[in-house]
Design a protein around this nucleic acid. Structure first.
Lengths: 255, 255
DNA sequence: CGCGGAGTTGAACGCATTCAAGTCTTGTGG
DNA sequence: CCACAAGACTTGAATGCGTTCAACTCCGCG
């Protein structure tokens, strides 16, 4: 995943090329490896070229709560660039490919080229909007809607990068991981998945979600994607797909 | 609350003075008034000179989920400076005093004085760290611990600004608001407060929290403040207070 | 072959919600 | 000045969603 493709409205091709020049070598990590550690001073930020990565905090009993889940193409660990370190751990979820960018290089580049700083800031703010939506999801939605809502986010974030269609997307989590993302137990996650499957809404297996009825998934999850700040073309494409799907469904219903 | 006092490690006295020059007139709002609206283009950011303000999202049934609660001295609505608008509403909680800073003025100032941008970015990142901790609180802690944990955050954020001692602090919320912050019902919030009171830990009434046993409050809330990125003097002062309190408690226990 | 992790399912329990009633305070209008 | 309405707080009782405990299957791997 190339930086310009990942953030088309943030990095021009030229900016993306400059940043890519500064990146260190590709580094592959296996599942459940530590990417960044809490309270350890960092000297580089990380670009998640392939794969998924989870930020999480442990509770007293040692169980994880995911704080966010990064999808391929995310520029992660920007907080450490400005704050020096982070307050939580980040692990790979599934196999990942990372590339580091030294804080020093980024600092020099931002000094020469100030708009870059604003662009990176913008990415941080979009991440923060996602954090806030997670608070809403976990605080207000019942388990079934939580899972559906989470799937919607993962679908649309990947769709926006051209990584999937609206029928199927990658999500290399175990059911336990899914529970840790949604704040429910693995057993309950399993049951909610069973319901979504039985209702013909979607099917989660083998690290993939197959979406059978996207409008129903969105409805069940009480989802709206206003918080994702999608480029307007993508937003338009999505709306079109959905209304086309609705028309098709209505036509089928009329037969 | 002066900007330098609110962010001593971010804004020097000189920077704070410059920014304060740009601020519009003080504006007082009564409780539960709209400060910023979702999806409406903003042309100014807001400094919360006095009082409390809540970001929230409504669920389908019209109930609010707080996404964050700003305390006096917070620079709020920085997201709108970079993103243009926000995806949720912000209301006053209790009476507030606001001062606006035009995005245009901020933009010019950042252009002349690049370090300022990094400092504002830093504030955004500290806010994001708080968001993440809210996910943890709501996702992993049972009701009683959630309330205690939330109180700890409110205490320490205000303590760090010199707004309170560790014995008592302002929190002009109703029990319903508290429930909306912690993701529980008003009735349950009431019961958890009753337990904390009965256990001699703290007492929440009339918009104030009286802390009777801070170590117990922290323990009950499974709280740690690593995510608040406090200036080291403040962090040190807090640790000292706590260990002094523990020693005093131990001495009393030995009598 | 046997181990361990992931997924599945049943049953009992319990935390939190919901519904409901009642108190108290505050502010407003008769 | 009092009556009354509205909102905040409190408490009880019933319900139910989600957790916990437990058993069992399936699959990949040593």
């Amino acid at each position: 995943m190339d930086l310009h493709l990942a953030y088309p409205d943030i990095f021009s091709r030229a900016d993306a090329a400059t940043l890519t020049m500064l990146m260190g070598p590709r580094q592959e990590l296996r599942p459940r490896q530590r990417i960044a550690r809490a309270n350890v001073p960092m000297c580089q930020s990380i670009y998640l070229e392939q794969g998924f990565a989870a930020r999480y905090r442990l509770d007293r009993t040692g169980r994880r709560q995911f704080l966010s889940l990064h999808v391929p193409g995310d520029f992660i660990d920007l907080p450490s660039l400005v704050l020096g370190s982070i307050d939580h751990d980040i692990d790979s979820v599934g196999t990942v490919v990372l590339r580091g960018i030294a804080h020093g290089d980024l600092g020099r580049l931002m000094a020469e080229h100030p708009p870059l700083m604003r662009n990176l800031w913008r990415i941080s703010l979009m991440d923060a909007a996602v954090h806030r939506y997670w608070i809403f999801r976990i605080g207000r939605l019942p388990g079934r809607a939580r899972v559906a809502n989470f799937f919607c986010e993962m679908l649309i974030r990947q769709y926006a990068r051209g990584l999937c269609s609206t029928q199927r997307f990658e999500l290399p989590l175990t059911q336990t991981d899914l529970g840790e993302a949604c704040g429910i137990t693995p057993v309950h996650a399993n049951r909610m998945l069973g319901e979504l499957r039985a209702d013909g809404i979607c099917d989660f297996a083998d690290g993939e979600v197959e979406v059978h009825d996207l409008p129903a998934l969105i409805r069940t999850g009480h989802f709206s994607w206003d918080y994702l700040y999608l480029p307007s073309e993508i937003d338009g494409a999505l709306r079109q797909q959905l209304s086309a799907g609705a028309l098709r469904a209505a036509a089928q219903g009329m037969r």
